[in-house]
C-alpha cells in the first residue's frame, strides 16, 4: 500500500500518518500475543522506518507517540465504563462488550510493551 502511495504522490509530496505497530525483535510468542491484543492487521514485521524507506520514500521521520496513544485508549475506556448502561442499551450487550474488550486489550498490549504507535513521515523526491 505504501508503494501505491508513492506512485500517486507528486515529486516533493509527503505521506504523513500515524500507525500502531509492534517493537522490533519480538519472539514468535510475543508477536502472537501482540496480534491477539492489538489491531487486526498488526504484525511483527519491519520497523516503520524500514517500511517507509522500502516503499521508496526519502527522509523518513518516525516519532514515538505511544504515551499519547495510551492516554487516548484510557480515555475511551473510562468513558465507556461511565456510559456503560446507556451503551449496552444502544449498542446491545455483544457489541458493547466487543468494543470494551478491544480497548482493554489494546491497553494491555501497550502496557506489556507489545504495541506502539508512531507518527511517520516520508517524502517523495
Amino acid at each position: 500500500m505504501l508503494r501505491e502511495c508513492r506512485r500517486i504522490l507528486k515529486p516533493g509530496g509527503t505521506v504523513v500518518g500515524v500507525s500502531i505497530h509492534t517493537p522490533q525483535s519480538l519472539t514468535p510468542a510475543q508477536e502472537e500475543r501482540a496480534v491477539e491484543l492489538g489491531p487486526s492487521l498488526v504484525c511483527g514485521c519491519e520497523s516503520p522506518e524500514e517500511l517507509i524507506s522500502q516503499a521508496g520514500f526519502s527522509r523518513p521521520q518516525v516519532t514515538d507517540v505511544t504515551f499519547r496513544f495510551r492516554h487516548t485508549c484510557l480515555a475511551w475506556l473510562t468513558a465507556m465504563k461511565e456510559l456503560e448502561s446507556q451503551l449496552r442499551t444502544e449498542l446491545g450487550d455483544e457489541d458493547f462488550e466487543d468494543e470494551l474488550d478491544q480497548k482493554e486489550s489494546m491497553l494491555t498490549g501497550i502496557d506489556e510493551g507489545l504495541l506502539l504507535r508512531s507518527l511517520i513521515i516520508g517524502e517523495r523526491l
Partner: peptide
Amino acid sequence: GMALPFASETFSSIVHTDVFC
C-alpha cells in the same frame, strides 16, 4: 488502498491514521 484508482503523481500529500495495522 492496495490498488489506488488514481493516475501517478496526482496528489500533493497523503494523510492516514491507523491504516497500516
